[in-house]
Design a protein around this nucleic acid. Sequence first.
DNA 1: TTGTTAATTGGGAATGAATATCATTTTTAC
DNA 2: GTAAAAATGATATTCATTCCCAATTAACAA
Lengths: 147, 147
Amino acid sequence: MKNGARKGKSLAQLCVEKGMTLTKKRKVIINVIEKDPGHLNTEDVYNRAKMEDSSISIATVYRSLKLMRDYNVIDHHSFGQEHQHFESPMKSHHDHFVCNECGKITEFTDNSLEKLKINVARSHDFEMHSHRLEIYGLCSDCSKTSQ
Amino acid sequence: MKNGARKGKSLAQLCVEKGMTLTKKRKVIINVIEKDPGHLNTEDVYNRAKMEDSSISIATVYRSLKLMRDYNVIDHHSFGQEHQHFESPMKSHHDHFVCNECGKITEFTDNSLEKLKINVARSHDFEMHSHRLEIYGLCSDCSKTSQ
DNA sequence: TTGTTAATTGGGAATGAATATCATTTTTAC
DNA sequence: GTAAAAATGATATTCATTCCCAATTAACAA
Ligand SMILES: [Mn+2]
Ligand SMILES: [Mn+2]
Ligand SMILES: [Zn+2]
Ligand SMILES: [Zn+2]
């Protein structure tokens, strides 16, 4: 789920623009998210944040992630699982392959797919703000192995 | 999330094929899901099942839905919300518009989009089993109103 | 700076959805 | 029919998330 056109701005900047105050704790949390190239769940964020600031509380992590989610400044996915995974909005828009065998998540982008999504939404008179496409199946590794 | 090619078979049949025994309670639950054209959460299923069989337990509803989910005979979505929503697999494959304003969920199908998904997966050497596309934004009603 | 107010936070309690347990009931296989 | 296996209801338990509130920190005018 991406709003696009956010490249160039840091997550911190986006938060400020939305009116969030950038406290020390929030800076730590933002730093954790921006540093990671993948998809972190709440526990992941908490564990990494504690390494930078051992006094940080799990409640603050939950509160901050919820806040950023509500303000639409971080992306989140559930990937068919129970818990949410968060990722930096600095990455340009992409979709995900989810391997049902090994759980690996791979990111991909396809321009014609993006264009088609826009057209489909328009033709159904739906004002698209964001979208999420997840493709489930077997990654190339698991596909070979299972033969 | 659809496996396609399941049209014609009832949910009950699919369950039997997977090796599930069709108990009285499960028949009630299956009936609830097949009867509804939309997307039910666990509580919804429980409430409706109780109307057909007041002795049914919420534990059984959880167990049965989990089982059918694990056996891939019912479709489930989270729509960016907390709880999962289930729907009958009898409906042919479709994607969803989710209105951020009124919460309304609309189903749609687009053949060229489906073809493109297949091509994209193939070109990334990913063996697609199912996929899920959710488009978030404003439905036509809310789009008009918010002007 | 300093003081005043509002916002944020840590820690622990509360909540609640989902699962586990276990005695009882139902289904299956013979 | 009987015996073994599976499913169920009621309830206890788990555990991720939220709530609560006193203490801390941030914002900002003087
Ligand atoms: Mn991603
Ligand atoms: Mn649907
Ligand atoms: Zn894999
Ligand atoms: Zn709407």
